[in-house]
């Protein structure tokens, strides 16, 4: 299942990019804005990260993470294009075993005992970057959104047990619907699933030491490979409420649910739930 990652990566990304661009180019003229509208937003929120990585441990881990994001979104009535940088940080503990510690005791040369208790938890940092392009298709009151994204996600877990996905570069189509409401409000729901991805996870033996290699190089060399739907299944659902206010402001509330299953080297399941509030500066205007 593992294949050399790099030679095919560029080709896949170019293909994905070309698909997104041709989709955008084929858009019909219709409800175009007189002026393109841009939003740059900063969000803060809360994320619950739950992991069951049987390659690393028999225990499920979960944790409460503080989340933040920086988003740029542009739209012209036919196309929405979005670039997002997100990060979350916190600690995970084994579900149902919170507060565990491991005690290390040593007898020093002078005969005294030195004791250290270390909590069994994992500091967790997740980060993601994503570029998405969607076509807007008005159907009555509703605007359908169809497109896709190229994204990179990273999870860095440091602790006694280090369950989870390490990094993933993915190509995912997305579908969504937007319902405009009175008073410059809207509600939007979208879903995406990864079709193909280049994934790095700790290899079967859970070690990354290779002669002359750094830990990251060892991880990439030993634990990376291409995945398609047969081995990797994901589903992300995003619900948002948005309201413009004043001349330049936008308030957005997001609730996102993500599920991932990967089967190499052993089963990994991740469920992420994120609630986020963001304030955006709006540039440009509606027709």
């Amino acid at each position: 299942m593992l294949t050399p990652p790099c030679p095919r990566l560029g080709g896949l990304l170019r293909l994905g990019g070309a698909c997104l661009l041709s989709l955008a180019a084929a858009l019909p003229r219709g409800t175009a804005l007189a002026q393109t509208e841009h939003r740059v937003g900063l969000g803060v929120g809360y994320s619950h990260h739950a992991v069951m990585d049987t390659a690393a441990t028999s225990l499920a881990y979960d944790g409460h993470l503080a989340a933040t994001s920086l988003t740029y979104q542009g739209e012209n009535g036919r196309v929405v294009w979005t670039a997002r940088l997100g990060a979350a940080f916190g600690h995970m503990q084994a579900t149902g075993h919170a507060g565990r510690t491991i005690r290390f005791v040593s007898r020093e040369v002078d005969g005294s005992l030195d004791s250290v208790s270390v909590p069994v938890r994992a500091s967790t940092l997740t980060a993601d970057a994503r570029v998405r392009v969607e076509r807007m298709l008005p159907v009555g009151r509703v605007v359908l959104l169809a497109g896709g994204d190229v994204g990179f996600g990273l999870t860095n877990v440091q602790g006694f047990a280090a369950p989870g996905l390490m990094q993933m570069l993915s190509l995912a189509p997305s579908l969504g619907a937007r319902v405009p409401l009175p008073n410059r409000q809207l509600v939007q729901v979208s879903a995406r699933t990864v079709l193909a991805a280049w994934v790095s996870r700790m290899p079967y033996d859970q070690t990354v030491s290779l002669p002359g290699q750094t830990p990251y190089q060892g991880l990439v060399a030993r634990g990376s490979g291409w995945r398609s739907l047969g081995h990797l299944q994901t589903l992300s659902i995003d619900a948002a409420y948005q309201r413009d206010f004043g001349a330049r402001g936008t308030l957005r509330v997001n609730l996102a649910l993500g599920y991932l299953h990967d089967d190499w080297p052993r089963s990994l399941r991740v469920i992420d739930t994120t609630a986020e509030v963001s304030l955006a500066l709006r540039i440009g205007g509606r027709s």
Binding site: H48, A50, V51, M52, S58, L59, A60, D62, T95, G96, R269, I271, D272, T273
Partner: peptide, 12 residues
């Protein structure tokens, strides 16, 4: 959130 914990921890 609570469902995600339940789904993953059932083996425990």
């Amino acid at each position: 959130t609570s469902l995600s914990g339940c789904v993953l921890e059932r083996r425990e």
